[in-house]
């Protein structure tokens, strides 16, 4: 169980990091989505993985699922959802404003126009 979750988190993180480092905004946004998925899974597992256990503790010694990380993950999901929507809007607007979807601050033609090369 732990191994499965750990491998899943690491693979999703690796994909996310790879995509975030790309040149085009769309891949970067996808990378960010992947990263937030991995983060949420990680946060969820920080309360220890427990299957089929109650999350309301009557006897502290009995096995139980920790409810706090679940609440944290809910908050994190809502925030990352909002942020993803926002960056998508920004990316689209950036595309229409500048005509391409490069992440770099200045495209090569702008560099030339500015007389830097």
């Amino acid at each position: 169980m732990e191994w499965l979750v750990a491998i899943a988190i690491s693979v999703i993180t690796a994909v996310g990091v790879y995509l975030v480092l790309s040149r085009r905004t769309f891949s970067v946004v996808m990378g960010l989505v992947m990263l937030t998925y991995a983060t949420n899974l990680f946060l969820f597992s920080s309360g220890r993985l427990a299957v089929n256990q109650p999350d309301i503790v009557t006897d502290p010694a009995a096995p139980h699922a920790d409810p706090v990380p679940q609440a944290l993950v809910l908050t994190a999901i809502v925030i990352s959802f909002g942020m993803t929507a926002l960056i998508l809007v920004l990316a689209v607007r950036g595309y229409f404003e500048s005509g391409n979807d490069e992440v770099d601050l200045l495209g090569p033609e702008e560099e030339i126009a500015r007389g830097r090369t």
Binding site: S80, M83, I87, L90, S98
Partner: peptide, 23 residues
């Protein structure tokens, strides 16, 4: 807007790292 996208991306990655740290 371009600079804004960079700013947002950097900070979203930062937020993810913050959540990992909190976990």
């Amino acid at each position: 807007v371009r600079a804004g996208i960079q700013y947002v991306v950097v900070n979203l990655v930062g937020s993810s790292l913050f959540l990992l740290a909190l976990g």
